[in-house]
Computed example of a mutant assay.
Amino acid sequence: MSSMNQVSLPAPEPEAREHSERLREFIGGQIRAAGGAIPFARYMELALYAPGLGYYSAGARKFGAEGDFVTSPELGPRFAECIAHATAPLFDQLGDERWFFELGGGSGAFAEAVLKRFAALGSLPDRYVLLEPSADLRERQQQRLHALLPPELFARCQWLDGPPEREWTGVLFANEVLDALPTSRFLMRGGEVYEEFVALDPQGNFLRVEQPADALLHAAVRHVEHDLGTPFPEGYRSEVLPQLPYWIQAVGGLLRQGAMLFVDYGYPRREFYLPERSDGTLVCHYRHRAHGDPFHLPGLQDITAFVDFTALAEAGIHAGFDFSGYCTQANFLIGNGLAQRLAEVESIGDEVERYRRHQEVKKLTLPGEMGERFQVMGFQRDVDFLGAFALGDQTRRL
């Protein structure tokens, strides 16, 4: 039984602190109602998505320089333009009512840039569908796209409250979505699998405790051990997503024909569960600072875990898709039109703007930035998406 050390981070404004305290009290009530402890995955779900209080459900600025982190689309349009280059050929292989289905959507920057590039390529989807659980983010996306897209492009946009309920064709796209799925945390004690729970200490502070894992988590951890060919050592703590196959089936199961494309930070399984990574991959983001305390200011910070891309490959194939490829973000972007986008940057007359766009490309592609830390994985069903992964495919690492 232990608590996570508090870290030195900027103090929030009084109003923000009050908001965090309301969420802390709400989660505390959930813990007491559950008999004194909830799984860490449930804590993470509440901290991120509790209606009106969670990090993604409330009104705090999350993306960009004024938020807590910067995603690839927030840097500029090049990322989205390369995604358009990679996926536009798929629309030619599909029939009527072709969707581009974005999970999440962030600030709407990706949707704006990718729709404009699809239009320039003469290969527009019939609908641009966004699944956005946050009412606040949905409103911001709608305002941005209404203001910045031509009316004929905005008319293609549609927002859903949940996964499609009927069959559809097109492309499912998720950038930095998997890392925010509420994850189970496990711990090895005496050769047995335990699950990390969150309880309250006598002062009402969050405390992590362990309980024997249920059948689903136990089976998921034993599957990883079997695949690695070795048991986890005593005291090893990490994350696993036993619900990932069910999640993939929920969001993509009704995709009759098309492709799925995931971009996120993570590792193949053998790198995800390295011996030296004995406390897992959990990372929190608060005002552009990364740290490891998920109990710090709940509701004001992002909580994420790296992605096990081997598990993603297994889940996609289990859902009935063919595997398209797996590579670094740098190789995917370079293989899908980044050189042409860079040539456009060179033609910019404004020196300051040209420098800014060069920095955008560097952040997207350099190994020390997003280029290798972020990975890209694709799946296909009755289309050919293999060409998008022609450069630097690393499927062998899985």
Rank of each mutant, 00 (worst) to 15 (best):
S3K: 08
L9C: 02
P10W: 00
A11K: 02
E21K: 09
G28I: 04
G36A: 09
P39I: 13
F40Q: 12
A41M: 12
E45F: 01
A50W: 05
S57G: 03
E74Y: 07
L75G: 07
R78F: 07
A80M: 05
C82T: 02
P89W: 11
L90R: 04
F91K: 02
L94I: 15
L103A: 09
G106I: 03
V114S: 14
R117S: 04
S134T: 09
R140C: 06
Q142T: 13
E152A: 10
P164H: 04
E167K: 12
V171N: 06
L181N: 12
M188V: 12
E192C: 08
L200E: 05
G204D: 06
N205Q: 06
R208D: 09
A215N: 09
L216P: 07
G229A: 08
L244S: 11
Q249T: 09
V251N: 06
V251L: 08
G258P: 00
D264R: 02
G266K: 04
G280N: 03
G280Y: 00
H291R: 02
I303Q: 05
A305I: 00
F309D: 03
H318P: 05
A319P: 02
C327Y: 11
F332G: 02
G337T: 11
R341I: 07
R341E: 13
L342N: 03
A343Q: 15
V345R: 11
E346Q: 12
D350P: 09
E351L: 12
V352S: 10
Y355C: 08
Y355Q: 13
E360G: 10
V361T: 06
V361S: 07
L364Y: 02
T365P: 05
P367T: 03
E369V: 10
E369I: 14
M370G: 03
